[in-house]
Design a binder for these strands. Structure first.
Lengths: 342, 342
DNA sequence: TGTTAGCACTCTATCTGATAGAGTGCTAAC
DNA sequence: GTTAGCACTCTATCAGATAGAGTGCTAACA
């Protein structure tokens, strides 16, 4: 374990490096932080810290830079959680008020505002409707030849699709079929429906097989479309402000990764733990972000997972601030989602 | 007007420059294109072309590069439209078949596939529901306290929102109100509704003002949410492959522009002309893309505008191929939209 | 008159030293 | 245990030299 003085010095180095992105020398620490120590003493301590694996030297005559282990220790023991300024709070409140009209926008704008506040890329997977239960399906008239099939879930999410009404069939006939489905499926999780029940229900309504087939296909399609979780992404340009992404090649790598929704989804699902989790550099499982850090939080309402959110950036990131923001958004997001009835 | 030989040389230069991104010298033209001319002769011609404003020289001892005027002439007179390979067609067909389930995905995936084929950024504004007519509003039951208000338009787009049912009100009461609206508004363009008619309709249903107010608010909100057109964006990382975007600053400029949906919307609306339009460099009205070119097409179905699509990239872009792709997608998009009933 | 070979000229990109500056590690003194 | 002093190392930067690509011009040729 590190003694107090080493901890102080390590903290000073990480703090400084996070803001300057330049290797930190003994002189600057001695000058800036008033610990009554000469650069030489600090040099000795830094040398120790390097031997212990908390610091690294880009080259012999450069200052020190935190190692992954250094960051880890910083995050676990040293880091000061930062308060969110009133200004920031006002920004957020106002942002939501002017820009958010529905659930989807809650996610869209949350990701944007988080990216802006943390000055890093921010991403989120939206609630998977897999957790929602089928309520009923209903046909709404559109014109003579077409109708809209609406699928309602118990938390109010709707999926809909326009379908052609087969000739010599009335809207009532269609609704009849829908009712057959409704009786069978009401209250079931979408997951369950997907797997087996559609097949079973089929038997019930053999009376009108052709028509039923087509309605079923629509429902299945609607389910499939809703099945995948949606990924929201914000602040990609923030990457370009980071000195660690000065080379185009690096930007390209990360940016094309961020374009692959499925991959982002997987990355966010790798850990669904409680609270805020920080993954530093090599700790990340996906190789494309081994030189990045990720601060991640899983949001729940009444115990149920409603989404996972993350801030992604260089290992040199403002962990304190980012964690505070994530925790703050946790509360805020809950409120917003209640307001928009997810 | 340019004589035939000058045209041939200009075409060769533009073609070569488009693929290599390096200034083209007289020797390489003489070698590659078998016109029976020595480098010296070609040099004279190039000198003429420069004097006429079709070519530019980065510096005295470099080859020539097409000027904006050179590109313009190339696009208008010289360029050969490229055929789309069977391989590409198969790619597209397969892409749509596996990835597209609903209207929204048609746009999403179109933009992606176009970006991939043209190796440039591609963007699109989705159909504005402003052009669609209100059909009816209906309340669907959700549970004791909540209902879903569904708004149906004549082309089948639905907007919906969960609302709380005020105490001592039944679903029938709500539908009553909705019917009042329906009688008033059916068949009207959303634009018209937005502006004045909501106010007027209000008078009719003074009997239950409080309830009506809230329903009205929901409708208005739904309208507002649908009001803005949606922008789809694909292939942003393609930018990074272009040598003209090797400096991070340039990337940052364009990328942050691409993040602003409203701006993209405006840019795409600056010209709603028929067919495929090419805007080269300075011809672009928005200053942020004065060193880019844009190939843009407005898609219609039965005369009605259903969206505008564009490919954006450096002025050195494969105009021939891009234009062909856009024209091809025009047809394809029509089919897809019919299939998904927009 | 149009075309071409030859050559001097220009500009860039690249490499090479040289230099200044930052920071360290070590030693010896406090 | 702390610190001052100093030699040492490494990088970033700049000037100068060099090679290479490409041009423009002139004079000769068909």
């Amino acid at each position: 374990m590190l003694d107090e003085r080493k901890q102080k010095i390590l903290q000073a180095i990480v703090d400084d490096y996070i803001t300057t992105a330049e290797p930190i020398g003994s002189r600057s620490i001695s000058r800036k932080y008033d610990m009554g120590l000469s650069p030489a003493t600090i040099r000795n301590e830094m040398s120790d810290l390097e031997a212990l694996g908390y610091l690294e030297q880009p080259h012999t005559s450069a200052g020190r830079v935190p190692s992954p282990r250094g960051y880890r220790f910083y995050v676990d023991c040293l880091m000061q959680p930062q308060k969110i300024s009133d200004h920031d709070i006002a920004l957020i409140t106002n942002w939501y008020e002017t820009k958010v009209r529905n659930i989807e926008q809650v996610f869209q704008e949350t990701v944007k505002v988080v990216a802006r506040m943390t000055r890093n890329v921010s991403l989120m997977v939206a609630p998977s409707p897999t957790n929602s239960r089928f309520k009923y399906a209903q046909f709404l008239p559109l014109d003579e030849r077409r109708a809209i099939l609406v699928v309602v879930t118990d938390n109010g999410v709707i999926d809909n699709k326009v379908i052609d009404i087969p000739t010599d069939t009335s809207l009532e006939d269609l609704q009849e079929i829908a009712n057959g489905l409704n009786n069978r499926l009401a209250g079931l999780l979408f997951d369950q429906i997907k797997n087996s029940l559609l097949k079973e229900a089929k038997k019930d309504i053999m009376a009108n097989p052709v028509l039923f087939e087509s309605a079923l296909a629509v429902l299945r399609q609607a389910l499939a479309a809703e099945g995948g979780e949606k990924v929201y992404l914000g602040g990609t340009t923030q990457l370009l402000n980071q000195p660690e992404f000065r080379e185009v090649e690096k930007i390209k790598g990360l940016l094309s990764m961020l374009e692959e929704e499925q991959l982002l989804c997987d990355i966010l699902h790798m850990q669904d733990s409680d609270g805020v989790v920080v993954t530093i550099g090599q700790e990340n499982k996906y190789s494309g972000i081994k030189d990045c850090s990720m601060v991640q939080a899983t949001y729940r309402i009444e115990g149920q997972v409603i989404g996972t959110m993350a801030v992604l950036g260089p290992t040199r990131m403002e962990y304190g601030k980012i964690i505070t923001v994530m925790e703050f958004m946790n509360r805020h997001l809950g409120e917003m989602l209640k307001k928009y009835k997810l």
